[in-house]
């Protein structure tokens, strides 16, 4: 596989920006990268490709970054996979970071695998936690020092898998927005700016963006104080109306499980969980959601959880503070009524 692991390598975050604005997930990752780097005694680096994006360095420093590697090139104004990936690949080869983290955004999920392929390194998708630990090989009893533990729910069941890359560094992972809580910025922190000349060949720019239409995100689940979420048990797109009504009465937002999204009841933007958004509202009301681990990891840190499910054995009840065993089609209208009485 790849060359020696660089134990002194930095912890890097890919600083994804769109139109000169950093994605929230980048700053969330900077906070965790800082913790990992402190544990390892190394610096935090951020790779920032784009056009006229130097001004973003300050926000990165204030969220824990020591060094910003800026690749400023007018041809990088809009993301295309090859030049962006190539810029990161060249910087990885030049500086040999030990860890690289990416937001599991559409862009991150497009580019990170391409980088992993070129550097032949491991890449774990949609991690819900990242830690540093020594790992003893079960067979050889050899101890690998300070590996990145990449933790994510495993397919099916109440199972969490920990993935490691003993060889094939950098150790790379993608993380969804909201999984790592954003730390408060410290505007007094500063860092060093490295202007990188990558000499990206014209051949890398074969794919051209001709036109583009981007809407502001309609759904902002992370900011909601109250979330009313529906699952497979809601049964139809029409029936999701009920949840919007309850959310309306409570002044909250609507969320969903993957079964509801896959069933076409609601758009993916509303999905809560490992491959959706992670939320921590004051109140989470799960309606007709079984509570699979991939869903729970995205909502179990809510301050209060109410579960409405007609199956008394549904796993959702084990993370709930209040459980209502019943038909959501009856319970939700009752709840709307009770809330309206109070208002």
């Amino acid at each position: 596989m790849t060359s020696e692991n660089n134990q002194n390598g930095e912890v890097w975050v890919f600083a994804e920006q769109d139109n000169g604005k950093l994605q929230d997930v980048v700053l969330e990752l900077c906070g965790r990268a800082r913790e990992l780097a402190d544990k390892l005694g190394v610096k935090v680096g951020a790779v920032l490709p784009g056009s006229k994006v130097d001004h973003l360095a300050a926000a990165l420093y204030s969220h824990g970054v020591d060094r910003v590697y800026l690749v400023d090139d007018p041809r990088l104004e809009f993301f295309t996979s090859l030049p962006y990936a190539e810029a990161v690949i060249r910087l990885i080869r030049k500086y040999a970071p030990q860890i690289v983290l990416y937001g599991a955004t559409p862009l991150g999920r497009d580019m990170a695998p391409r980088i992993a392929s070129a550097t032949r390194s491991g890449l774990t998708a949609d991690c819900t936690d990242l830690q540093i630990s020594d790992v003893t090989d079960a067979k050889t009893k050899e101890v690998a020092k300070d590996l990145l533990l990449q933790i994510r729910p495993a397919f099916g069941g109440n199972i969490i898998a920990t993935i490691i890359n003993p060889a094939g560094w950098p150790q790379m992972a993608t993380v969804r927005e909201g999984v790592m809580p954003m730390k408060e910025a410290d505007p007094s922190r500063s860092g060093e700016l490295f202007r990188e000349i990558c000499d990206l060949e014209d051949a890398l720019f074969g794919v051209k963006v001709i036109s583009r239409c981007k809407e502001e995100k309609k759904v902002n689940l992370k900011a909601a104080r109250i979330i009313v979420a529906g699952g497979g048990g809601v049964g139809s797109r029409e029936n999701f109306r009920l949840l919007f009504d309850l959310a309306g009465a409570l002044g909250g937002a609507v969320g969903a499980s993957r079964a509801a999204v896959d069933g076409g009841y609601i758009d993916h933007d509303y999905q809560v969980g490992q491959t959706g958004t992670t939320v921590r509202p004051a109140l989470y009301i799960a309606c007709g959601i079984s509570g699979a681990v991939q869903h729970r990891v995205g909502m179990q840190d809510s301050a209060k959880i109410i579960a409405i499910n007609n199956d008394p054995n549904a796993p959702i009840f084990s993370v709930a503070h209040y459980g209502i065993v019943g038909d959501l089609n009856e319970v939700i209208p009752m709840m709307i009524k009770a809330v309206k009485e109070r208002n």
């Binding site: 390194s121 774990t124 495993a154 109440n158 490691i164 209040y322 459980g323 009856e330």
Partner: peptide
């Protein structure tokens, strides 16, 4: 390069649970 190091089953926390009757 990626290896599964550990598989853990999750112990669900069962604290402060209140059952609510599905009635008005």
């Amino acid at each position: 390069p990626t290896k599964v190091f550990r598989i853990q089953s999750i112990v669900l926390k069962k604290e402060g649970f209140a059952s609510v009757e599905p009635t008005e």
